[in-house]
């Protein structure tokens, strides 16, 4: 293992000398790392977004190796986190709220290491916390769904029944009701275990039953389960809304939009900041204003969104950013009373 480290260093130095543009100290200085969620790196959702848009992008652009760890249980999360810190890796990106306890423990034990925690806040001086306002992005797609719906019934399919997912559903409902006070929103959760984030057939089943109840736009905040939702909507010629990544390309023509949550960006920015020496601890709230969440409009759904709809959604977006519309956060009181 030592040998490979030396090889890497030599390789790095060669690259540095060859290009001349990259400073040698930058290559030698940062040893970034990532600990994926215990759902695995290729979970078709959260961790995969961090890999694709954060880790991989950073490695491709800079040539700096990011050490990856894939724990299988919570005890291992903490174990890996401490191992990485012990070996001088920094910053260490922790993917997902379930790693908060592990980050808190590791950050206390290794005050010199830098940690970036996504989706949760740990108040330690060496932890950067990135949280998203999923309710704001969901509000926007709710507005769009209400405009697109002919039946005045829309659906929401969540993954695992936890407050974080209810936050999506609650924001979506608020947006829809804001646009059309009479609209009916059907909520369903796929399941009660983490497996609910990877159950496309159940997702399709829920979507079909929602469509039978009249829903013609269905928003999935369910990780891999969403694929079943989008497929079922496409089969029936109804509309679906994607989540986390821009999933508009999956079924062009029936994917109305996607509620984008830029988790990969958070990882990428943490590494880049560390490379530039501008990494700072604290809490970063990534809402609409910060570009952390958004709705996706591209060539795949251009035909579904009229100019009027686009203008309306962007108008609402501006109002949320300006503070004229305050979207109730389900997790502030664990209710959806707005």
């Amino acid at each position: 293992m030592k040998k490979t480290a030396i090889n890497k260093l030599v390789k790095g130095l060669t690259v540095a000398l060859a290009t001349g543009a990259v400073s040698m100290s930058a290559l030698a200085d940062i040893k970034p790392a990532v600990v994926y969620s215990d759902a695995g790196k290729f979970d078709k959702s959260f961790s995969e977004a961090v890999w694709n848009n954060g880790v991989k992008r950073f490695m491709d652009e800079t040539g700096i190796e990011v050490k990856e760890a894939e724990p299988t249980n919570l005890a291992q999360v903490e174990q890996y986190m401490k191992r990485l810190a012990k070996r001088g890796h920094s910053p260490i990106v922790a993917v997902g709220f379930s790693q908060a306890n592990a980050v808190a423990a590791a950050a206390k034990e290794y005050p010199d290491a830098q940690f970036t925690l996504i989706d949760m806040v740990v108040p330690e001086p060496n932890v950067q916390n990135v949280v998203f306002k999923e309710h704001e992005g969901s509000f926007l797609v709710g507005v769009l769904a209400a405009m697109k719906s002919d039946s005045d019934v829309i659906g929401f399919v969540g993954g695992m029944d936890i407050p974080l997912i209810s936050r999506f559903g609650c924001g979506y409902e608020q947006g829809a009701k804001y646009q059309n006070a009479d609209i009916k929103v059907i909520h369903n959760m796929t399941g009660s275990t983490p497996a609910a984030f990877g159950n496309p057939s159940k997702g399709a089943e829920l979507t079909r039953s929602q469509m039978e109840s009249g829903a013609d736009v269905i928003f999935a905040a369910a990780g891999g389960t969403g694929n079943g939702v989008y497929q079922a909507a496409a089969d029936a010629g109804k509309y679906a809304i994607g989540v986390d990544s821009n999933q508009n390309h999956l079924h062009p023509g029936t994917m109305l939009t996607s509620m984008v949550k830029r988790v990969g960006e958070a990882a990428y920015q943490s590494y880049s900041a560390a490379k530039d020496g501008s990494w700072a601890p604290g809490v970063q709230v990534m809402g609409l204003a910060e570009g952390g969440v958004d709705w996706a409009l591209d060539e795949h759904n251009r035909g579904l969104v009229t100019q009027q709809m686009e203008a309306r959604v962007n108008d609402v977006k501006a109002k949320i950013i300006a503070g004229e519309i305050v979207v109730h956060d389900y997790m502030s009181d664990n209710t959806c009373n707005y």
């Binding site: 709220f97 908060a100 949760m120 936890i162 407050p163 974080l164 009660s192 664990n334």
Partner: peptide, 15 residues
């Protein structure tokens, strides 16, 4: 899941 997300949940906690 019911107990952890609705009853025993530490207030203000996401996990």
């Amino acid at each position: 899941v019911y107990l952890m997300s609705k009853v025993l949940l530490e207030p203000g906690q996401m996990t």
